[in-house]
Structure formats: C-alpha cells, structure tokens
Computed example of a mutant assay.
Amino acid sequence: MTTRTSSSFKTTPDICDDFETTVRVVDPSLGFANFGGKKHFGGQAVTVKCFEDNSKVKELAKSLDGRNKVMVVDGGGSRRRALLGDLVAGDCVQQGWEGLVIFGSIRDVDEIGQLDLGVQALGTHPQKTEKRNEGQVNVPIRFGGVTIHPGDYVVCDNNGIVVNETDPRERIE
C-alpha cells in the first residue's frame, strides 16, 4: 500500500521501495530532526555550501522563487551557529519554498514550528551567524554519505531524508 501525506511526494519508505536502485538515503545516524510546521516535504534541490555564515541562505530565501524547491544547506555539520532563524524562514515561506535541509543548527524553533515550511536540521543553537557573504550556491555538496547535486529531488519526512536524481512522483508502474 502506498502512503501519502499532505506532500505531493510519497513517503520516504515508499520512495525507497519504488526506487531501490537509484535512491540515496542520508545517514540517519547524523540525527536530523523535523523542526518546521510541514513534516513531509520535497522538491528539487538548490544547494548552498557555507560554514557559520548564512549570507547565501538569506539571499536565496529573499530572492529565489522556492516553489517546488528544497534548499539544502551544507553547513559543515557545525552546531556553533544557527544557519536559519525565524526571519529567514519567514522569507522562505513568502517565496514559496517547500523546505530546507540544514546540515547544521537553527534557532527560533518555536516560531519556525508554526510556519508552513519543512525544516530538517541537526539541532539548535541560539546564536546567529556572522555575515561575511561567504558560501557557494548550486554546487554539489556531500554529507551523510550522500552527494546532492543541484536539481536532484530531495524528500523528507519523519522517516528520513532521501535523494533521487529523477522526480520520484513520475514512476511509471
């Protein structure tokens, strides 16, 4: 039986079953957790590589149409600064982003939990980043044993995070 939630994507276990030869699963031992108001989300990856500086995250949140997109942020796994807070998350909602996956920390979790936005991150930290305008956008990134390329499909739910090169909604059975 195929299970669906409010997302247009199947659940991550169903995607793993349907795409077992192509799906890549982010290592669950990293401890990603859902913090956003949307617990099941997916879309095409827009990647950001940054370290303790969310300048590029903030820029994309304000300027890019995020419909059907997931911002995937490689923060190097740092838990010493928050790469997302309520103001940037609010900008993401305004621009229609499906969600964010942050290999790092976030803050303002109570506010973010009320937004119609998916957010998975490693944890929380109350301190914001310094703005040095550093980072790279739309480059391949790697964490949790998975390389994520811009345009890959990323789907997240309480079961985990999966990545597939093609749209997992378009499986022909």
Rank of each mutant, 00 (worst) to 15 (best):
T3V: 15
T5P: 00
T5L: 14
S7N: 02
F9A: 05
F9E: 05
K10P: 00
K10Q: 12
T12M: 04
D14G: 02
C16K: 14
C16W: 04
F19S: 00
F19I: 05
F19C: 07
E20L: 04
T21L: 12
T22I: 02
V23S: 02
R24D: 10
R24I: 09
V26M: 00
D27Y: 11
D27V: 09
D27L: 08
P28H: 11
P28V: 11
L30E: 12
G31H: 09
G31K: 10
A33D: 12
G36R: 09
K38S: 15
K38A: 14
G42Q: 10
T47F: 07
V48P: 01
C50I: 12
E52G: 03
E52I: 04
N54F: 06
K58R: 15
A61E: 11
S63V: 00
L64S: 10
D65N: 15
G66L: 03
R67P: 01
N68D: 15
V70T: 10
M71Y: 10
V72N: 12
G75K: 02
G75N: 00
R79H: 02
R80P: 05
R81W: 04
G85T: 05
G85M: 03
D86Q: 05
A89R: 04
G90M: 05
G90R: 04
D91F: 12
C92Q: 02
V93E: 10
V101W: 14
I102G: 06
I102T: 09
G104A: 09
S105M: 07
R107A: 09
D110E: 15
L115Y: 11
A121N: 07
G123D: 09
H125P: 01
K128W: 02
K131R: 14
E134I: 09
G135M: 07
G135P: 02
G135A: 11
G135C: 05
G135S: 08
V137C: 01
N138K: 06
N138Y: 04
G144L: 01
I148K: 01
P150V: 09
V154Q: 06
V154S: 07
D157M: 00
D157K: 00
I161R: 02
N164K: 02
T166F: 13
R169C: 09
R169H: 02
R171V: 15
I172T: 15
E173A: 13
E173T: 13
